[in-house]
Nucleic acid binder design. Sequence first.
DNA 1: ATCGGAGAATCACATATGTTTCTCCGGGCC
DNA 2: GGCCCGGAGAAACATATGTGATTCTCCGAT
Lengths: 212, 212
Amino acid sequence: MLSQVAPSEDLVFFRPHQFLARENEQPDGLFHIQEGWACRYRMLSNGRRQITALYLPGDCCEPCWALGRPSTQPVVALTNIRAKKAPCRMSGALFADSRQSFWKSLADSYERQANWLVTLGRKTAMERLSHLLLELFERMRQSGLAYGQQCALPLTQMDIADITGLTPVHVNRTLQAMRARGLVELQAKWLRIPDLGILREIAALDATETLA
Amino acid sequence: MLSQVAPSEDLVFFRPHQFLARENEQPDGLFHIQEGWACRYRMLSNGRRQITALYLPGDCCEPCWALGRPSTQPVVALTNIRAKKAPCRMSGALFADSRQSFWKSLADSYERQANWLVTLGRKTAMERLSHLLLELFERMRQSGLAYGQQCALPLTQMDIADITGLTPVHVNRTLQAMRARGLVELQAKWLRIPDLGILREIAALDATETLA
DNA sequence: ATCGGAGAATCACATATGTTTCTCCGGGCC
DNA sequence: GGCCCGGAGAAACATATGTGATTCTCCGAT
């Protein structure tokens, strides 16, 4: 077993609830996640929490760090994580070289945030959940981690609540309603979407939203 | 009068409701706004609208365009606007030269979006309005457009509703309550904040949020 | 002067979502 | 085998915010 691990020092591991970056900490590298999920979030006074970004396998965490400022929101592992750590200097290398992946990460992340502003500001609970499930499925699919209409979804209903700006109770309620209408199957951390087109309509997504 | 206008061809003007960029259109330049306000937004099916970014004098509109992708959300003028148009090529010049202003724009914009995800997802109406008014005042102040505790605020209550994810009626209601408590004075497109510290507390802002 | 329309301010009422509390189930652990 | 505990599910009730309609004021255009 041990002998199979390549001797690359920039491979790092995290356990659930472990921090990838704390508030106001200048991270010394970007994480390219190979396996597992993480999220960025902010806590408010009375225990309210809002998750502001999800990092899935294949994602670069956190693109904005390369612009050379400390993270103002902590990033924490949601599952076990295996990642590769790359230095994040504003070096010429970064600007010249990895244009094909790094800049795309940043632009995707920016656009995804803008889409979620619309969802959190103006959409109903069912629309929010539809948006989330579609986005996660699509991102997993693009990383080759979807199988047919299914993929893993290692989030608790409380996590989902903190992403969608709802309460866990209402997430549960709304998921029941969606199940009853045959819109999604979600159990044991596994998601299945019988009809992507219908769910897209319910999510009230703009035609231009890529969900990538 | 006319003779005072410098013969620079990259000076552009817009009137309220005029588009700076339409959906899915590749803008051919970045606008450096010298006077007036604009916003980026998205419309939903039944007339719902969510504003996802505000552009004030001094702002670069829209930082993300320089990353070389079409705008997926339209940008429209809220007031009369005077702006300078700069080409936005992914040219070496952009990367090397304007690091001091352009990259800061992009990072600020990204961070501001993340802050608004928290506000739209988890905060009450009064917290949202406090966040907005504080942010606008602070941004105006940094551009030298605030006078003491006051600044211009050329938004209708409907605009404010579409920024904060509320209804115009509720914006009005909540502003009345804030006025009654002496938290803000807002009339005739002019804002005054008697006590910034108190409003900051009410906004439930994180200590790290710069509002810049 | 007059008209018309946009924006602000209110009121009465409706409802989506939050709060509190409870039960049930399965998995890890001693 | 029994114990804990986190997570899903659910019921009863509370409320912040949305809906729809009306009035008033202020300007700008005719």
